[in-house]
Design a protein around this nucleic acid. Sequence first.
DNA 1: GTTAGTGCAAACTCTTTGCAGCACT
DNA 2: AGTGCTGCAAAGAGTTTGCACTAAC
Lengths: 139, 139
Amino acid sequence: MGDPLKENDLKRTKCRTAILTLLENAPVPITAEGIYQALSGEMHVSLSTVYRTVSTLAEKGLVLKNIGVDGITYYQLNNHHHCHYLICTQCNALLPIDGCPLHTLEENLSATTGYHITGHHLEFFGLCPKCASKHHDSR
Amino acid sequence: MGDPLKENDLKRTKCRTAILTLLENAPVPITAEGIYQALSGEMHVSLSTVYRTVSTLAEKGLVLKNIGVDGITYYQLNNHHHCHYLICTQCNALLPIDGCPLHTLEENLSATTGYHITGHHLEFFGLCPKCASKHHDSR
DNA sequence: GTTAGTGCAAACTCTTTGCAGCACT
DNA sequence: AGTGCTGCAAAGAGTTTGCACTAAC
């Protein structure tokens, strides 16, 4: 129970442990490149291993992978705490939003469309207070 | 008024007209590759031109670009009709969902976070009736 | 010792870009 | 005729994969 790796028939390697620990402590989703950069300081790891590891962890349901508007994939621990993000379109600041009002909506949708709804993806975009006040010129 | 291209200082070329027409008649967002394939039957066009054209149209606000969970960018006409999609995770069937219950939510968020919210992205995932009934084995 | 995981480099996909030639106004 | 648009090919970014080597069990 204590070891999420062994529960999924995965060997507990240095790399996987490090990536899991990193994701546990990350307040927001990280990219593969970000994981690679963060781990490079403390150990030797290759970028392809990072990709392979997060993919494996995602398959096992330990990690969630989401593709951002920038087209880059972000990874986060699947702590089963459903939450969405508010993203500043200027500085990319990420603000977690607790609570999700969509479950009742999902039930309605399921009833009207006949789909078996398994999940949803919701993000809000805007300007964080700093960016909104700083300049009015957007890129 | 009748010509969205000229209004945006864009020359009305064969390629742009064809892409706009295609998007007008498309019930769901299409990929650049899809546009390329569709147009190749009736005229000569290069894939890079498709990319350049949709980017230009997107900059002018005539077209909306959205990145899907598959990492591929989908383009659709910006008909100012706000709508979301329900996507089958097995066959990728796309079902438009009219109406959006998030505007009041946006106002609440704006008030609590201080962000100036400019938009959102919402997608539902699930199994369409066919896929749900067909088999229980997933890919 | 056996099997699974890793590193490196190359390949792959989607998208962008430089430059010469062509089409629209 | 002039400027902007297009085609082609090459480059670019992010991600995946083949193969030999290493580490976990």
